[in-house]
Design a protein around this nucleic acid. Structure first.
Lengths: 195, 195
DNA sequence: GTCTATATTGCGATAGAC
DNA sequence: GTCTATCGCAATATAGAC
């Protein structure tokens, strides 16, 4: 059973905008791939930009749901949880990282209302985990929770951001994501844990 | 004394392409800002794409020169050198990071010939520093130099990539770049040094 | 809700004068 | 080396039939 035109347009837009960017995708190409008429973009989303914002909304909501429901974990467990979850998210939403990159490099109209909020919720998750770890004495007391949170975000997310490029000069591995994240978490945790 | 039209076009293009992306900049806007005629873009660079590639070439060459002439440094010193240098590069070339992001998210025709090579040279610098540190016993022997190099690149560069966004929820500091990089290097070095 | 047809605008590129 | 003028094309958006 085929979905309705609105859904088909939205789903066709996800990989197209991700791979080519907003300007490089025409509503003709979009509607053709969706098997719908190009006039329906204006009908359902107002205009091309409205469709893009709808895609953003759909993609970024995945981030906030990912860092929810992880209370009752220890600081160290929450760090590991973040790393494992990153692998999962980018497997399930293979286009999300492109949208993050595009929005950071060149914010669209939906940046403030959707992008910024979801990124902030991920950041606050990390910040809380580290601040908590400093309190409990698990982590070094000379850490700044803001910088340490950003360091962790960097060591994990830079890999996914640059994966298309970086995997060309990385030795092949059967499970590259897992191998990298395990090593990265090891380095990071070793760097922040109180000894 | 004003520069020639070719130089003015090239220099006007750098911030424009960086901020808006290739497609969102018209040759009319470009030539207007450069104080030159739009027909000169074809005359000097073949077409708009040729101008973009010339800009890429100019921007990315900064990376390779940055990691040259740093022999005779110890592994740990080379790690710190990389961090300090990153601050310097992004101060001197404030648009470079945008080009890196754009090229990673959406490679242009100049990707293989210019982008890929310069990024690789930075990567090899880090890889060599870490492999050397493992040999000398400065760094832990269970490190994989590939993953460890990428971890360092991530902890440093993610900050610069996301700075426009992330500095909105980071507490203000008199020298944010320096403060972050010092903390990040501390975490990283603590994580890789043999104890 | 979906279609065709079209209005309108702006683009990149170039021919040819100077 | 620089300019004007313009060609040809592709883009988004919409009016109006069904």
């Amino acid at each position: 059973m085929e979905k309705d035109s609105r859904s088909r347009l939205l789903e066709a837009a996800i990989p197209l905008f991700a791979e080519k960017g907003f300007n490089a995708v025409s509503i003709r190409e979009l509607s053709e791939k969706a098997g719908a008429n190009s006039a329906l973009i204006s009908y359902y989303f107002g205009n091309k930009e409205g469709l893009y914002t709808a895609v953003l909304d759909f993609q970024f909501s995945r981030i906030t749901t990912a860092v929810s429901n992880s209370h009752s974990l220890s600081p160290i467990e929450r760090i590991r949880y973040y790393g494992k979850n990153a692998i999962l998210i980018h497997q399930q939403c293979p286009h999300l990282m492109r949208y993050i990159q595009r929005e950071v490099a060149n914010p669209s109209v939906g940046f403030e209302t959707v992008v910024s909020r979801h990124i902030a919720s991920a950041y606050h998750f990390l910040h809380a985990a580290i601040a908590n770890g400093i309190e409990t004495g698990d982590f070094r007391s000379d850490l700044d929770p803001d910088y340490a949170a950003l360091s962790l975000a960097g060591i994990i997310n830079f890999y996914f951001m640059t994966k298309p490029l970086v995997s060309t000069f990385l030795p092949p591995a059967k499970n590259l994501d897992h191998a990298y994240i395990m090593q990265a978490l090891e380095i990071y945790l070793n760097g922040v844990i109180n000894k």
